[in-house]
């Protein structure tokens, strides 16, 4: 007798995702962009010249500099890839921070229910009312100013190189700021998921078996909510990359000599009139990355949670 092999949720989702052409192309595009950003700059394919070469500024695209050079003669492709490292990292780290906070907060609210839930969600309601960009700018400036004091410690005690210490002091506050202010939606999503799955039979079974609350919440309920969490994570990353770029564009995010896509767009805007390529190339890469992340998130939502509406 032939036994039909059942499909797991994940293999089902993978099949559905593969059928979604846009999402699948996006997935590959993203992989290529990520690999290019993190591998190419350390190969000899791209010329690395962090200090630039003024005599070679604004060079048009050529075989030596595929995308040309910037205002102080640095290879534009090299800068886009290096900037991409920072933009992608900030997006990712900030997302991880926000997911950790949002998931725990939402899970506790949903699991405890009753008064705890009411109070916790009321707090989220109030936090929702606070203007995001205003707080991000405020926090970013304040946390960055405070963390500047840690610089001697990083250089002298931890023996980090000066450049790396500057990068750490710049990036960590930025990720913290964005992550600390961006977890509300995740908390809401997880809370409603936990709230509804709490009533299911397998949880009742777990309760009657005498499992601890911690066990039930983290080993039974949350693993079954991975779908929505993954979907929302994918949709959060582009939002946070955009936030980083906005901050950097306004001059309160990544600070030169560190670079990110936001910094490049900011600098490029200054030369818009005469050297449009300086803003066009970073814009294109930036837009493609965000587009791919958004399409992938949409595709994942359809794949993992077919019932969810497309908003």
């Amino acid at each position: 007798m032939k036994i039909e092999q059942g499909n797991s949720l994940w293999s089902d989702a993978w099949l559905r995702l593969k059928k979604n052409r846009l999402a699948f192309i996006s997935l590959w595009t993203l992989l290529i962009i990520i690999l290019a950003c993190f591998i190419l700059p350390s190969t000899s394919l791209v010329e690395a010249n962090p200090n630039g070469n003024l005599s070679n500024a604004f060079a048009p695209p050529s075989s030596k500099h595929i995308l040309g050079t910037d205002q102080i003669g640095r290879d534009l492709l090299w800068r886009i890839l290096k900037g991409g490292q920072i933009s992608l990292l900030v997006g990712l780290i900030a997302t991880i921070i926000s997911i950790l906070i949002g998931v725990s907060y939402g899970a506790i609210a949903g699991y405890k229910g009753g008064k705890t839930d009411a109070v916790l969600m009321r707090i989220v309601d109030i936090l929702y009312g606070l203007p995001f960009l205003i707080l991000v700018i405020l926090f970013s400036i304040v946390i960055t100013d405070i963390s500047k004091q840690a610089k001697p410690f990083l250089i002298e005690d931890l023996k980090l190189s000066k450049n790396f210490a500057e990068l750490v002091i710049n990036i960590i506050p930025l990720c913290l700021t964005i992550g600390l202010l961006g977890w509300y939606t995740m908390a809401r999503v997880v809370r409603s998921q936990v709230l509804s799955s709490k009533k299911l039979e397998y949880i009742e079974a777990a309760v009657s078996l005498g499992l601890s609350h911690k066990n039930i919440l983290f080993k039974q309920i949350l693993p079954n909510q991975l779908g929505p969490i993954i979907v929302y994570t994918t949709l959060t990353i582009p939002g946070f990359i955009l936030t980083e770029a906005t901050l950097s564009f306004l001059g309160v995010g990544v600070q030169p000599p560190n670079s990110s896509w936001g910094i490049m767009l900011n600098e490029g805007a200054n030369y818009m009139e005469t050297k449009p390529l300086l803003i066009i190339f970073p814009s294109v890469v930036f837009a493609i990355t965000l587009l791919a992340l958004n399409f992938l998130g949409d595709g994942l939502r359809d794949a993992l949670d077919p019932k969810a509406s497309k908003d």
Binding site: L242, T246, G268, E273, P276, F286, L290, L291, N294, F295
Partner: peptide, 18 residues
């Protein structure tokens, strides 16, 4: 629409200006 969501104001702005 997805393009509109993914392209930030600081890319659209300079393009319109130019």
């Amino acid at each position: 629409a997805m393009l509109g969501i993914s392209i930030p104001t600081f890319v659209v702005g300079p393009i319109l200006a130019k």
